[in-house]
Each structure stands twice: as structure tokens, then as C-alpha cells.
């Protein structure tokens, strides 16, 4: 540990509200990248499968592989990664590991049974069916596990909310739609603008906005000073620039305005911008909300406010 990091740790330990740095800085930042990539991949796979987009499936698979690598980099002892299969009965991290494993195995089987790749496994084969089921189970697990990991973090009151899993699932779906819109728009596919994808994106975005409002309201009205501190960091403190600039402006305002078609008609380029802006906004949502985590202070009961 370098002197600067040691001094910062000592200052953190002295401070009343100690920011969590374990999953935000240094090696820990890769967990944010991992959760972002895996979330988009899971949503993207399910939607691509529904809309029959092979390009979307491939993109989702690549994103999931990247997310898995990011998770590995986050581990200080990646050579022991298989140990993470042990505690699936109680640990959401372990369940997420299983979900990603199912997805990576099932996804490759499913892709290899597609005509676009010459269907070496056969289109209607048993392996194709098994791959499909595994990939869907893996996607659903990946979408859900992240929020539950945060909810299980009793040391971070802001995360320790029952809404977090729902919010992460909604964001995974939104990210998946945006990735599919981006991919289809770049490939000039008509499904990008038609097929109800944009309407679905608007609907899920509305759900996301409501969930965020409930999350913030819940933290403020909970009476928990630590959760309020996190909200303060998010809305008026060290993370406000990322929250307002990234999550709100880039992730919500810009794409919502563009979907109206008032600035420019909904061309392939505009659709690509909508998809990209939405994805960037999703990243900043995870970045800012994870970094906003503050440890529950240890105080004598009568000193708790």
C-alpha cells in the first residue's frame, strides 16, 4: 500500500461517513465495468432472441465475455475464480457467476446452431435447445443478481434497498434495447425504427425514472443519515456531475428529445445516437450509484441520528 493510499485510508477511517472504495477505485472499478457490460449483454440477448437479430445476439455475447473479463480483473486472486461456484445457496455473487457460466456455455451452443454461422450443431438439435435454455436462464440470472448483490450489502445503507434489484433489472432491459437499436441502426436494419423497439425503450425508460424517484425518496424518507449522505453525494456532491451530466442529460434527456423527432427525423444515424446515449447513460447510472455508497458508521446506539 503506497503512502498516499495509506494516508487516505486512515482519513477515511477517521471520517464519519466513509466512502466505499472497494468496488469503485483501482481494481474495483472493473466491477462497475463488469456489471454494466453484463447487464447490457443480458438484456440485449433476450431482446435479440425475441426480435431474431443474429447481430444483436453476437454483440450481447461479446459484451458478456467482456463483462466476465472485467469481473475477473476485479478479483485480487483471479486464479481462484472457480471457488466462486461454492456458495450459490446463499451468495448472489456466486449465483451471478453461475448465471454468467450458463450464459457463456449456452450462448455459444445457440450461436453455433444458427444458420448465419452455417449451423454446425444443427438448427433444431438437442444441443441448440439446451444452449437456448441455458442462455436464457443465464441472461435472467445476470439481470437479477447485480441488484441483489447490492441489496445484500448491509454495510452500505443506500444499496441496502429492496428496490435496487428491480432498478437493475429495468436498466438491463433498457440497456439491451438500446444496444439492439444501436446495432440495428448501424447495420441499416429497418427493425431499428420500426418493430416497437423505440416504444419499448420509452416505456422501460419511464419505469426507470419512476424507480429512481422511488429509490431516492425511499432513501431520503428512511431516516437513515448514511443513505441520505449517499443521496447528497449523488445529487449535490462529489458525484453530481456524473449523475446529472451522464445519467440524466446523456442517458435520459438527449435520447428522449431525439425520439420525438422534433430536432431531426428518425434516421438510422439518429437512432444510433439514441441507442449510444442511452447506453452511456446506463453506465453513468451504475458508476454514480456504486460510487455513492457510504459505509454505515459505527456509533453507540444513543448517538445514532
Amino acid at each position: 500500500m503506497t503512502s498516499a493510499r495509506y494516508d487516505r485510508l486512515i482519513n477515511d477511517l477517521k471520517s464519519e461517513y466513509r466512502p466505499q472504495r472497494e468496488w469503485a477505485e483501482g481494481r474495483g472499478a472493473f466491477l462497475i465495468y463488469g456489471h454494466f457490460l453484463v447487464g447490457v449483454a443480458a438484456g440485449g440477448w433476450l431482446l435479440s432472441r425475441y426480435y431474431g437479430s443474429f447481430d444483436g445476439l453476437v454483440l450481447s455475447y461479446v459484451l458478456a465475455c467482456s463483462g466476465g473479463l472485467a469481473h475477473l480483473v476485479n478479483l485480487a486472486r483471479p486464479e481462484r475464480v472457480l471457488n466462486m461456484m461454492q456458495r450459490y445457496k446463499t451468495s448472489w455473487v456466486s449465483r451471478g457467476f453461475w448465471g454468467l457460466t450458463f450464459f457463456l456455455i449456452g450462448g455459444v451452443l445457440y450461436l453455433l446452431s444458427r444458420n448465419e454461422l452455417g449451423a454446425p450443431l444443427g438448427v433444431e438439435s438437442l444441443l441448440s435447445g439446451i444452449g437456448d435454455i441455458l442462455a436464457v436462464i443465464g441472461s435472467l440470472t445476470m439481470m437479477g443478481y447485480m441488484g441483489f448483490v447490492y441489496t445484500a450489502s448491509k454495510g452500505i445503507p443506500f444499496w441496502n434497498s429492496t428496490l435496487h434489484p428491480v432498478l437493475y433489472i429495468a436498466y438491463a432491459i433498457r440497456g439491451g434495447i438500446a444496444a439492439l437499436v444501436l446495432m440495428l441502426a448501424l447495420r441499416g436494419h429497418e427493425l431499428a425504427g420500426d418493430g416497437g423497439l423505440l416504444e419499448l425503450w420509452i416505456g422501460v425508460t419511464a419505469v426507470v425514472i419512476v424507480l429512481w424517484a422511488l429509490e431516492i425518496q425511499g432513501a431520503i424518507s428512511s431516516g437513515d443519515e448514511t443513505a441520505k449522505r449517499s443521496i447528497n453525494d449523488l445529487l449535490a456532491g462529489r458525484l453530481a456531475i456524473y449523475f446529472y451530466g451522464g445519467t440524466l442529460v446523456i442517458g435520459l434527456v438527449v435520447p428522449l428529445i431525439l425520439t420525438t423527432g422534433t430536432i431531426a427525423p428518425l434516421s438510422a444515424n439518429i437512432l444510433a445516437v439514441i441507442g449510444l446515449a442511452s447506453i452511456i447513460g446506463d453506465f453513468f447510472m451504475k458508476y454514480s450509484s456504486i460510487k455513492a455508497g457510504v459505509y454505515l458508521p459505527v456509533r453507540l446506539p444513543h448517538l445514532h441520528r
Partner: peptide, 29 residues
């Protein structure tokens, strides 16, 4: 010998009494 260093337990502990050892273990660098 089993820990992978994912640090999940640190965030789960409501008492902040777990520490991550990522040191180069020399006080005088």
C-alpha cells in the same frame, strides 16, 4: 487459501471490520 479477494464481505459487514490486504508489505517502501 480460498478467498478470491472480491471484497463482497467488506460491503456486507455493517461494522466495517474487514480489511483488504493489497499491500506491498513494507512500511518504508
Amino acid at each position: 487459501d480460498i478467498c478470491v479477494g472480491c471484497r463482497t464481505c467488506m460491503l456486507a459487514c455493517p461494522y466495517s471490520n474487514r480489511y483488504f490486504n493489497d499491500n506491498e508489505q513494507a512500511y518504508y517502501g
